[in-house]
Amino acid sequence: MSWWKPRSHEDVIFYPGRQETEEYVYTPGIHGKQFAEALIKGKILGMKCGDKFIVPPTTFCPDFSEGELVEVDTEWTVQYYTEVYRDLYGNQLEEPVVMILVQPLGWEGGLIHYLKPGIKPEIGLRVRPVFKPEEERRGTIDDILYWEPY
């Protein structure tokens, strides 16, 4: 019967469904736990792999060796950015949202986050993280509200 095709919308029905994943937990792992604990203290951890410093940290280095977690203790700058005007469905956002890639000077990798609303993004802009009040931090990346120039 597949030579027959429905010719009007009335011949088509749809069954509503739900996505398969409603809720689950994600185990942050050894490095993830320490990263989370550091965020609560207002610190950002990266990792040392041989003579390289990389952020964000993972348990494994690019050369497949084990990394050592260390605090990022240098200044951060905006490496690249984009201004998002529409969501994936094509809906216009009320205001464009600036997503930035921030990188500590001399480090590899970087974090992706928000620039403080109202600030004009610029490559090379020196920025620092603005954390939520300590009692509101949960050890997740949104413990940082946004990054601001200084």
Binding site: Y80, T82, E83, V84, L88, L93, T140, D142
Partner: peptide, 19 residues
């Protein structure tokens, strides 16, 4: 990435293309 990115709920998850 659930640890470093997802929680931010970027307004468009394809934003990396812009960068």
């Amino acid at each position: 990435d659930p640890l470093y990115l997802r929680k931010l709920r970027p307004p468009n998850p394809l934003f990396m293309a812009g960068i």
